[in-house]
Amino acid sequence: MSNTYIFALLLGLLGVFKAETSAIIENSKLGENILLTLDLIGQKMCVHQCFYHSDCKAVNFNKRQLTCDLLTRSGQEEPGSLQYDSDYIHIYNLSNDQISDFCANTSCPAHNRCVNGERKSLCVTSGCQTNGLTIINGNIRDDVIQVGSTLEYTCLLGYAKRNIDIRCLSSGKIENAEKVACFKMEGSWTIAFKIQSNSGAHPLNSFLDTGTQQERNSSFPSTCMTLTKVPECTTPYRTGLVDDWGQLGVQEIRFVITVNSTLTQEIVFDGYNSTNFDWFTGSRVKSSTWSDVTNTQTYLHFNLPGDQRSTITRLWTIIKSYHGCAGDIGWFLASFNPTGGCAFDMTSNIPTVYPAFPVCPKSTACYFLSETVEAETFAVLLKADKLS
């Protein structure tokens, strides 16, 4: 930076350079605190636009490209943020004496701007505040976004977000604000749901529990979002992705089961045109760690509601056939509070707390009674057009 520029900067900050009642710093711009950028605009109109926005304190005017940055702070307030740029002038200490219209004598609330009506001025919303938004495991870029602009936010490494328009409306509200969230990932998959055995949670009701969004719950531990079992995590990790399933463009669903903190079995389903209720079925199977779980296999029960009777509640069932308890064959089920049924419906956990997840550890179907083991968790993961 030249000595000439430093001298000019000091003179500007002292208000030596004046244009009408405003102070100008030549060859300078403030690199931060930009409220709004306007294109194809003259210097005088640039200054005028600042008066119409209650949050505007100064402007950067680009003489070459005729652009105008409205600023929430001035170079006088933030001298360390001033940058040398020969295309710009920085103008502060603005006075509404330069405006001869209704807005000259109008003071609007924060995040509003003044508009001249036929007989009077009006204050209209110019932006939406984001400080009321809750985002876990991510960061929102701006404190205020302008009407019509899209909210920009990022998620921490290992978390995904939805590809959806989240815009500032003229009402001052943010469209789709309830969908601002970061979702735990496992590799390239996004975790939509995870439940643990012996947690006391109903395996199906907790999955279909409309409105539950643990990804937006600041008190929900991030350790409970992982696929493995964590003893204190009795509340399932259930996300809003389950509710918005039909809007996500779901391509594939991955159903994973862990035993002894190890991913033991999994099935990948075709998610095209699926719902959050009908995807779990044999006809949608694309691949599986069980060689005989295919889309051509014959199943007695392969669905979410499973087999529910007065003495048993078998959910998330992948059952091949019944031949009495000792002869019942299949791959997986989630049992909840049975009053009867078979021994494999029960849990070996002491004290007795459900659900129980008997799973076949082999590569083909098992006898439930003699060959299954108790799984610790199962989870539902997604790949979808609207997730990144």
Rank of each mutant, 00 (worst) to 15 (best):
A375R: 02
T239V: 12
I350L: 14
D209Q: 15
I25H: 01
I267K: 12
F102P: 01
G80T: 08
L70S: 03
G15T: 06
P221Y: 06
L66F: 10
C114R: 06
G249H: 09
A384H: 10
T212F: 02
S218V: 09
G306L: 07
G172I: 10
I135H: 06
N131L: 08
Q146G: 13
M185N: 11
A375H: 04
F207A: 06
A104W: 01
K44S: 11
S188D: 15
T313P: 01
S291I: 14
S95G: 02
R309T: 15
A177E: 13
G75T: 08
L38E: 09
V115E: 14
S197E: 07
E252L: 13
D142S: 14
N62Y: 04
C103Y: 01
Y5H: 13
K173L: 08
A384P: 02
V353M: 10
G12L: 07
T372Q: 05
H202P: 07
T210W: 06
F183D: 03
P203H: 08
F357R: 10
D270I: 12
W331G: 00
S28L: 06
A192T: 05
A110S: 15
T150C: 03
A201V: 05
T190P: 00
T289W: 08
T223S: 15
P231M: 03
D101N: 15
T377R: 07
G132V: 07
M185F: 00
V47K: 15
H53D: 10
W279E: 03
R141H: 10
L71V: 07
N60H: 12
K18I: 02
R216L: 10
S2N: 07
G211C: 07
C68H: 08
R254N: 04
A110K: 11
N62V: 04
G341Y: 09
F51K: 05
L38V: 12
L10Y: 04
M225A: 07
I318P: 03
R309K: 15
V353W: 01
T317R: 08
S348L: 05
S348Q: 09
E376M: 01
V230T: 14
P203N: 09
R64L: 13
E186R: 07
V373Y: 01
S321Y: 03
G31E: 13
R216W: 04
I164A: 08
I319N: 10
T223W: 01
I41E: 02
D244M: 08
L122A: 05
Y237I: 02
L241S: 07
I99C: 07
Y367E: 09
I25F: 00
